[in-house]
């Protein structure tokens, strides 16, 4: 073939395994976090644990049912196995949520972009020493959990202050309660607001953006990470920009149908993006702020 055609192949790993072939993992623990969210801790049957940057995702296979993209909710600093928080919303996630300790699950990954909180990320728009605001809606906290762990640890080592603002449907659906308490103990400001209170709930009731006014961060120096339903991300990002946060320093995590994670299958397109490759984490500034406002249907 003529020389101008380049055929580069990078396989997912070096042992000849096809890029669509998962690595076998075993469920070593499972925890029912809320009525519909199950946290699965997975260990590879052989070989090293996958190294995942907070914000990236894996493709999880429930054998005989199918494969689905699930964000990783453990942090690189966590000593234990890799964790995924799975919300039971479809066939594959239902099978994953019902898996038992000892069951085998296929894992491919990690894929996609991350929250830019890794130590070696020298040009990170997030780690510049200013305040970091983390806004999560519902299960949107799962892909952010590792980043918050990292940021809270950094804050103790002299990094920027951390503000975690969480929106949930109701008190029973707040995920990672133990982490929220730990982050607060470690100096982060953690605020939670629910859409519907309960008789026991003494906290805030209202949209997650209503927490912004009370949070007390310095908007001019702040960076922000947002993950949740798109409507929540769009209104949250707009509110942050209105407060004076630089849109280039706001990252959001976008989601579309993902079937390969490799940029081949075409399902996760969103405008100029192939989200498994160019996302899920993208800067809000510019094209994303428009995409979030466009009607796709």
């Amino acid at each position: 073939m003529s020389s101008d055609l380049r055929l580069d192949v990078t396989e997912s790993d070096g042992d000849g395994r096809g890029a669509l072939t998962p690595i076998l993992h075993r469920v070593v623990s499972r925890h029912q976090e809320t009525a519909d969210v199950t946290i699965l801790a997975l260990e590879p049957l052989s070989g090293p644990r996958l190294e995942v940057r907070p914000g990236q995702f894996n493709m999880l296979t429930a054998f005989g049912v199918g494969e689905v993209a699930i964000s990783v909710s453990s942090a690189p600093r966590d000593p234990g196995p890799i964790q995924h928080s799975v919300r039971d919303v479809g066939q594959v996630t239902h099978a994953l949520c019902r898996s038992r300790v000892g069951d085998l699950i296929g894992v491919r990954g990690p894929f996609g972009t991350d929250w830019r909180v890794s130590l070696d990320d020298v040009n990170s728009p997030i780690l510049s020493g200013g305040d970091v605001v983390v806004m999560a809606g519902g299960i949107g906290l799962a892909p952010l959990r590792g980043a918050v762990h990292e940021l809270v640890a950094r804050a103790r080592e002299g990094g920027g202050r951390v503000f975690v603002l969480i929106g949930a449907r109701e008190p029973a659906q707040i995920v990672f309660n133990e982490d929220l308490a730990a982050w607060e103990r470690d100096g982060a400001r953690v605020l939670v607001s629910v859409d519907r209170g309960s008789p026991q709930w003494r906290g805030r009731v209202g949209l997650v953006t209503t927490l912004l006014a009370d949070a007390g961060f310095d908007a001019s120096s702040a960076a922000a990470l947002i993950c949740g339903p798109e409507i929540m991300m769009r209104f949250s990002a707009r509110a942050l920009v209105d407060m004076g946060v630089d849109p280039h320093r706001i990252l959001v995590s976008l989601e579309r149908n993902m079937q390969c994670g490799l940029g081949w299958c075409g399902h996760c397109q969103l405008g100029p993006f192939i989200l498994c490759r160019d996302g899920p984490v993208v800067p809000y500034a510019g094209v994303v702020s428009h995409l979030l406002s466009e009607r796709e249907r």
Partner: peptide, 16 residues
């Protein structure tokens, strides 16, 4: 097609 299936982060070894 080469640009899509063989020159991204991952190449499709079957295609190539």
């Amino acid at each position: 097609l080469d640009k899509v299936l063989s020159q991204g982060t991952y190449g499709d070894a079957r295609y190539v």
